[in-house]
Design a protein around this nucleic acid. Sequence first.
DNA 1: AATAAAGCAGACAGGTCTGTCCGGTAAAAT
DNA 2: ATTTTACCGGACAGACCTGTCTGCTTTATT
Lengths: 181, 181
Amino acid sequence: MRDARRRILDTATLLFYAEGVRTVGIDRIIAEAGVAKATFYHHFKAKDALVCAYLAEQYELQRAFLPRLPGTGRAKLEEVFRRIVETSEGPGFRGCPFLNTAAEFADPAHPVRAVVADYRAWFTGFMRELLTEAGHPAPGTAAHQLLLLRDGVAVSGALDAPEQVRAGTLASLRLILDAPA
Amino acid sequence: MRDARRRILDTATLLFYAEGVRTVGIDRIIAEAGVAKATFYHHFKAKDALVCAYLAEQYELQRAFLPRLPGTGRAKLEEVFRRIVETSEGPGFRGCPFLNTAAEFADPAHPVRAVVADYRAWFTGFMRELLTEAGHPAPGTAAHQLLLLRDGVAVSGALDAPEQVRAGTLASLRLILDAPA
DNA sequence: AATAAAGCAGACAGGTCTGTCCGGTAAAAT
DNA sequence: ATTTTACCGGACAGACCTGTCTGCTTTATT
C-alpha cells in the first residue's frame, strides 16, 4: 500500500479533533490506521510534526473551500457565516481545531502555534477583502470583529445550545455588516 | 502548617492556567507547593478533583467580582467588558481558564465540564439582567451575543495583537448595546 | 497529658507514552 | 535484474505519571 501516510493523517485528524492532541497517543493512531510504528516515523519525524501536518491540512482545506463559496461581498460574508454556524450545529462538532490545539500548546513559540497564527491572519485578510468589496465603511475593524465572532461561534458551538449560538451569531453578523460610518 | 490545601490550590491555579492541565503533573504541583504527596491526596481525591476545585474557585471569584463593579445597566456592561479587555491585555494572559480546560476535556460528561457549563449559564444570566436593567429591546438574544463576544476576546486576546482585540471588542459591544428594536 | 489531625519524606507498583531498532516482505524504479 | 523505497509486526529502552503505602514529626484539641 502506498497510502500509509494518508491513512495516518486521516486517522490523526479524526482522533485529534474528537479527543484532543495530548490525549491521543501514537500507538492508538498507528493501530487504528493499520500502520507499523516504523512506517509512522518514516513519514513523520515526531508526533509534533504530525500535529503540524494535521493543522496545516485543515488550513489548506479552509483556504480552498471558503473563497469558493457563492456570492460576492456582503452576500458571500453571510454565506461564510451561515456555513460556520451550520458546521457548529453538526453532531460531531467539538470546536475549532486551531483553537483547541492552541489551547493544548501553551508555548507561543511552538511550531503548532505558527500554523494557528497563519490561519488567523489569512482569515482576517479574507474578511477584510470581502468587507471592502461590500463597501463597508471600516473594513479593518470589522474584519477583527468578524474574527471575534468566528471564535465565539467555535467556542460556544461546542459548549452551548445550538439555538443560542445561531441567534446570537446572525444578530451580531447583521449589526457588524450594517454598521454606520 | 495548616494551609497546605491553600498552597496546593494556589500552585495548581498558577501552573494549570499558564501551562495547561494535562501538561502539569501532580509531582510538579506538590514540589512547587512544598507539600508531601500523601498530604495532597489527603485533601484531594484525585487530580480531577483538583482541576474541578481550581475551576470552581475561578467561578466563585468571578461571581464575587463582576457584580461588584461600579455602575448599573449599560454603564456596568461597559465596565465589565472594559475589565475583560484590560485583563486580556495583561502580560500573563493565556485565555479563559474555563475554555482552555474544556478544550482539554473532550468528554461533555466529565465533572469539569459541569463547572464550565455552570459558569457560562451564570454569565449569560448576569448579562441578561444588566441588559434588562439597561432597557435593551432584546435582552435574551443580546445576552448570547455578549457571551459570544466574551469568548472571542478570551481566545483572540491569547492569540492576536492587543490593539485588534480592543478595537474589535469595543466596536462590537457598542453595536450590541445600541441595537434597535 | 493524651489523643487526633495535619503534615513531612520518599519508596513503590502499574500503567502509558514516545521514539528506536530489529528482521523480513512487497513493490517500484533504474 | 538489481537496487531502492515503502511497508509490516513487534520488541525494547527510558521517561513520566498517577495513586498507594509506610514511617515519622508537628500541631491542635480535649
